[in-house]
Structure formats: structure tokens, C-alpha cells
Amino acid sequence: MRHFSPSDPTPRDLGFAMPPEWAAHAATWMSWPANDDLWFGHLAGVREEYAELVRTIARFEPVELLVRDEESEADARKRLGDLAAFAFPVTLHRVPLDDVWVRDNGPIFVRDAGGRVSLVNWRFNAWGGKFEWQHDDRVPEYVAAHLRLPHWDRPEVLEGGGLEVNGAGVGLTTRSCLLTPTRNPGLTELDYAGRLRETLGVEKLLWLDGGLENDHTDGHIDTITRFTDEQTVVTSVAGDEADANHPVMAKNLAELRGMTDRHGQPFRVVELPLPATRLEGAEGRLPPTYANFYIGNGFVVVPLYGDPNDARALEVLRPLFPGREVIGLSSRKIIEGGGSFHCMTQQQPAGTLWTGE
């Protein structure tokens, strides 16, 4: 299995780019929750919500589920029941893990115009060294080895939740995340633009300033603003002007309305409410958001919190995904860990696995 380094031909050189999430999937990769300390005593409830997420995705596409040890595997099998009963296969892989956030520590897949699929392995350091990360940083290598994929190894830290793409050459990110000195000290906006162009096919990189209050990712884009098609962006707004999130979200909204695609065309910008109720956790305010939805084959799964705005969020999102079933699932326990469904999933695009030739 070949490892391509930064001195080798880049993905862009060979015609690879990151497809949008709504493109067809071969599977969804996930990691079973395991550490009760990281969930502040809520692990049992988290696992119940997580099992429902796995069951829902497996109605529509295969799930490749990483489990870190014997206890996790036994718990997953018990909660999920008969794996053969799902519409699509759920395959368990015993892999050392630190946490559940495979969106950020997993690989980012790329595909070329002929449908060949490979991946890029970025470094992961738990959002600037906030938690343990050594096991999670090795997950992309496990996935590559399992799929026998030649792939690219990058020296930079990059989390999948920190980048949105529209499938037409546009990427969207936040300064509060990518420009932190604990990720890639010294890298500028221009540096990132160049690297993401060569690795993921992002020809135009757009920047918002920041994300939600007390988000330990430093403001991942996937918690606030998402592409739903090439020309449509849905972005979080706070209804309460006294809320610390209000001015940040209002500024993002205004900036998005002035942004254009690669051809100078403005985006359609749709407002998505944040949950109305302030949630507190063990380490202060929690960052619940409806923008952390996951798009799969024929479905979109949206986190809900038992909040007055739950129904409104689903009303906003359903028309944006014609032909897909928009499903709301509880994420009230999961949000205690700081993220939700998009953070817990990583799509493998449909296509032919690349042989390196």
C-alpha cells in the first residue's frame, strides 16, 4: 500500500477532490462511545442515542463501526441486536480509540472523475491538545489498510468538521478554528487555501470568523453553517439578542450574503434557528445546534434536544433535501460531550477503490 507524501503528485495533480456529503456513499464510518469520564457520567444514555443513530443509518447504507475493546464490542452488539437484521450491513472493527469523533480524527475521502476513491490522512491532535488523541490519530491508517488504499499522508492538523465543501470547488471554514496556534502554527489563510486546493480540490476557500460559545473545537463550521447543495447554504441564527452567540451568528449571516461561488454567483442563504433553551453541562454552556446534521443515501439525520425549536428546525431543513427523508433523533445526552451526529460520522464515497495505478 503506497503512502504519498507532500513531495509526490498531489490529489489535485491526479484528478482527485473531496466530493460533497450528498454524493452517493459506499458506507458511513463511526466509532462506538466508550469512555464514561469523557461523557461526565452520561455514557449509558449516550450509547442509547448512538445506537439509534447507527440503526437509522443502517436503514439506508452500510455502517463500518469501530469498537475499541471487548467491552465496547459487547455493548454495541447488545444494544444494536441482530446485526444481520439491518437493511444494510453493520461491520464491527476492533481498533484502539480515544473518543467517538471520527469526523475529525478519521480520513477525508477523495474521488476522481472516473469514480476512483482514495483518502487523505491529516494529523489529529484533539483540537489543539485538549484531550487524548494518540489512538485516534491512527484511525485513517487503519481505514486505509482495511480498504487497501494508496493514500496521501499530510503533516498538517486538519479536522473534517472544520471544512464544508459544495462539490463545485468552494470550501467554507472558520478563522477561529483553523488559525489557532495549537493546530498549525504560522499557517495563514493563503497557506490553507493552497493546501486545500492541492489536496481536496477546494478552488475557492471562504472564511467566517467564528462559531458557537464554548465549542471545544474552537468553532467548527459543521456546528453552524452547512452547504445543502452547490448554491444553498444553511446557517445558524440566535433569536435572543442577549445571547453571546447572537452577534457572531449575525455577522456570519451578513458575510454569507455577500459571498459568491467560483463564478461570482451569490449563494442562497437560509436561516436555521439555534435551540431556544440554554443548556449547561459539566464544563459550562453546551453548544447544541441543528446544523450538525448528517447527509446520507436517501436521508438526513438531524439532532434534536427536546427544545421548542426542534420542530421549526426540521421545517427549515426538509425542503432543502428533496428526495431525502429528514429524520430527527434525540441528541440530548450526546451533546454533553460537545458534539453531535455530523461529528460522529464520516462518509466513504461510492466508487472504485483506487489501486494507485
Rank of each mutant, 00 (worst) to 15 (best):
A113M: 04
R268A: 14
N125F: 13
W122Y: 15
G106T: 11
L83R: 01
T173Q: 11
V170Y: 00
W39C: 07
A311N: 13
V90P: 01
L279W: 04
G106N: 07
W32P: 02
A282S: 14
H42D: 13
L190F: 01
G258W: 01
F109M: 11
T225F: 02
T345H: 02
N214F: 04
A311Q: 14
M259W: 12
F4P: 00
N105K: 03
R116G: 08
T228E: 11
F88E: 00
P140G: 13
S331L: 03
G258S: 09
T56S: 13
G81P: 02
N121Y: 09
R111L: 03
T232K: 01
L190E: 14
A313D: 13
G306F: 15
H3P: 03
H42N: 13
P273T: 02
A254H: 04
L80P: 03
V233L: 15
K130G: 13
L200Y: 09
Y290L: 01
R12V: 01
V100N: 13
R195V: 08
V157E: 08
R94A: 13
R94T: 14
S340Y: 00
A250N: 10
H220S: 06
T235M: 10
D75S: 14
G161S: 05
E315G: 05
E52C: 07
A23I: 04
E241D: 12
F109W: 00
D229A: 12
G258E: 07
G15S: 12
L329D: 12
W39P: 01
V269A: 02
N105Q: 14
E213M: 06
F267R: 08
S31L: 09
M1V: 06
V270R: 06
V248L: 14
D104N: 09
D137H: 07
A282L: 05
H3G: 04
G115Y: 11
H263F: 14
P181I: 01
V143L: 14
L172M: 07
S330M: 10
G114M: 11
T182F: 05
S5F: 15
V302K: 00
G106W: 00
Y290Q: 09
P19L: 02
P20G: 07
D112N: 15
T260L: 10
P303I: 06
M18W: 12
V233A: 02
A168H: 09
E280A: 10
H146K: 15
D310T: 03
D82L: 08
D136Y: 04
P266A: 13
H263N: 12
E198M: 06
A76S: 07
T10V: 03
L187H: 04
P322C: 07
F341W: 15
A26V: 03
A84G: 10
H42G: 00
L92G: 10
A76N: 09
N184K: 05
V233E: 03
E159Q: 06
G81Y: 05
I335T: 11
G296L: 09
D104I: 00
R318H: 03
G211L: 01
E325P: 06
S176L: 03
P140R: 11
I327K: 11
L279I: 10
R285F: 02
E283P: 04
G45D: 14
G129H: 08
D75V: 05
P247C: 05
A87W: 07
E325S: 10
D75H: 01
T10P: 11
N121M: 04
F4W: 14
T91Q: 13
